[in-house]
């Protein structure tokens, strides 16, 4: 088996905070990391290698030179080789151009080290959050596309079939398809191991293979980088901080509390139902009898000052 894992070095957007005074992004102390979902992809690939000895795991990334650190981390976890596709010509790519370059890189990986049976991507990146690069690569390379996979049930290298469990909103879908396939993985698929010391030592000494645009003589230069990216950022802004109503519910609208728990409960629902929440959550609110003031009590008498 030959498994390719696509990874990206990203700023750990979970660590970005908003300065409450200036309402701007605090970028200090935001480390560059391997996109967490991609790490689960590397882990899954290494597990496949452990299951099928002789499997080769190649990691591919597109990014600046500094992404070498991310590739080394993948090596420390057990990947065999790592390729960094890095060139100014690739910079500024959106998901369409990125999936084009990565699919070309995977073709080249296959040319050099043998046909690829499985490509694994994280379900999305922490910075872009789009989840489109995986499907993009699958489409371009005509691989079977399996997104949001939370478990690889079975791989049969002989029959060239793969069975996975896909994470959906309300359950798990079990899909079986042919290899070669592309799988995007969710965090729940596995627990990423801690690199062993030999892995760490191999990683710090490892120099990833770097390919520039010149290593792709056939590439269509109108489809890469900024030029090959149909989307642009029109404007970006920091949304106003969520303003919290900060209201203490006493159950007694317009009067001093405290009311009974039932009164407080009524007041809370009055408030919640007056917002957009019911539509957003999908609460089907039972029609309230007319003349009930919108928020009735069981006996039909209006709630104190019903604001709703």
């Amino acid at each position: 088996m030959h498994v390719v894992v696509c990874v990206k070095q990203v700023p750990d957007s979970r660590e970005i905070r908003i300065d409450p005074v200036t309402n701007t992004l605090i970028r200090e102390g935001v480390p560059s990391i391997v996109n967490v979902f991609d790490l689960h992809g590397v882990e899954e690939a290494v597990r496949i290698k452990e299951q099928f000895p002789g499997t080769r795991v190649t990691v591919v990334s597109m990014g600046p030179k500094s992404a070498v650190a991310a590739l080394r981390e993948c090596i420390s976890l057990g990947a065999d080789e790592a390729v960094l596709v890095s060139d100014r010509a690739f910079a500024g790519a959106d998901t369409l151009a990125t999936s084009y370059v990565l699919s070309e890189a995977i073709r080249k990986v296959a040319d050099q080290w043998g046909p690829v049976d499985l490509v694994i991507c994280g379900k999305q990146t922490l910075d872009g959050d789009t989840g489109q690069v995986g499907p993009g690569i699958a489409t371009r390379l005509k691989l079977e596309q399996l997104t949001y996979v939370e478990r690889i049930r079975q791989i049969d290298p002989e029959a060239r079939r793969i069975t996975v469990e896909r994470h959906l909103e309300d359950g798990v879908e079990v899909v079986e398809t042919a290899l070669p396939a592309l799988v995007t993985v969710v965090e729940g698929i596995n627990q990423v191991r801690r690199a062993s010391m030999p892995g760490m030592l191999r990683a710090v000494r490892y120099e990833p293979i770097t390919w520039t645009v010149d290593d792709f003589p056939e590439i269509d230069r109108t489809r890469i980088g900024l030029k090959g990216s149909p989307t642009v950022v029109g404007k970006a802004w920091v949304p106003e901080p969520v303003s919290r109503a900060g209201e203490t519910l006493t159950g007694q609208d317009g009067e001093e509390g405290p009311g009974t728990p039932a009164e407080v409960a009524r007041q809370l629902f009055d408030r919640l139902l007056a917002t957009e929440l019911p539509a957003q959550i999908g609460w089907a609110v039972a029609p309230v009898p007319a003349g009930d003031g919108g928020a009735g009590t069981p006996d039909g008498s209006p709630v104190n000052g019903g604001v709703a």
């Binding site: 998901t95 999936s99 993009g136 489409t139 994470h167 959906l168 989307t231």
Partner: peptide
């Protein structure tokens, strides 16, 4: 999950921009 799976494939096939 389904919509994002589908949209990514479509946008690549018609070579257009997709905002997620």
């Amino acid at each position: 999950y389904t919509g994002r799976d589908l949209a990514g494939a479509i946008a690549t096939l018609v070579e257009t921009g997709l905002t997620a």
